[in-house]
Amino acid sequence: MKASVGDVVLPGDYCEEISAVGEKAKVIIGPGLQKEIDHVYVTKAGILKKRNPNTYWVDNYQKRYIPARGENVIGVVVQKAGDIFRVDVGSSITAALSYLSFEGATKKNKPDVQIGDVVYAKMLVASKDMEPELVCVDSHGKKGRMGVLSDGFVFKCSLNLIRKILNPNCPLLESLKNEWPFELAAGMNGRIWIKANTMRETIALGNAILGAEYLSDEEIKSMCTNIATILAGHVS
């Protein structure tokens, strides 16, 4: 079946618009699309989206993470092997994180990372044929916001929810940050790390994020105010 931008698509649909544009200019096809001999076919169920200039992708529901280069993820260190740490990021195999890819780390000055630590890192190498590789520094050798996340609480959610809350148009974090102070790191692999002053606040924050999955922007705003009033003790 033919599909155009904004439509609900199923695997096996094809988009003539992409092929037509592709003849004149360069087109970037993202996740959920695949070029075959005759057409560009859809491989995932969701909504076909476009961003200028000529970038197309399918926005689909997914829980399992497939590593992609350049994404920030949250992982748990599961093993120390020679000069690398093995980090579980939720993909089919663990990712490798080198001792030396921390800020200021040298052969003699090893970073203090233990098994079980939660790290916020960037995917440097992600290919279907290779083990993914993580780094905790940017291209200038600075750690930025990456590194070990101490204390706090980690929970899992769907990959869509991460994309939803990180969207600049989403009011969730905007509304929550006015209510009480907290720290948050969202990994594109469907893991969120949160840290607030008290246990009550942490639980409220976690519930607010998980509850926002199927809500519209307006509903999110009212939910945030509700949670804030309950937390403040006005309603029990």
Partner: peptide, 11 residues
């Protein structure tokens, strides 16, 4: 399979 987000040729 559609729900899991695995890439498919067709449904």
């Amino acid at each position: 399979l559609l729900n899991s987000g695995l890439a498919m040729r067709f449904v």
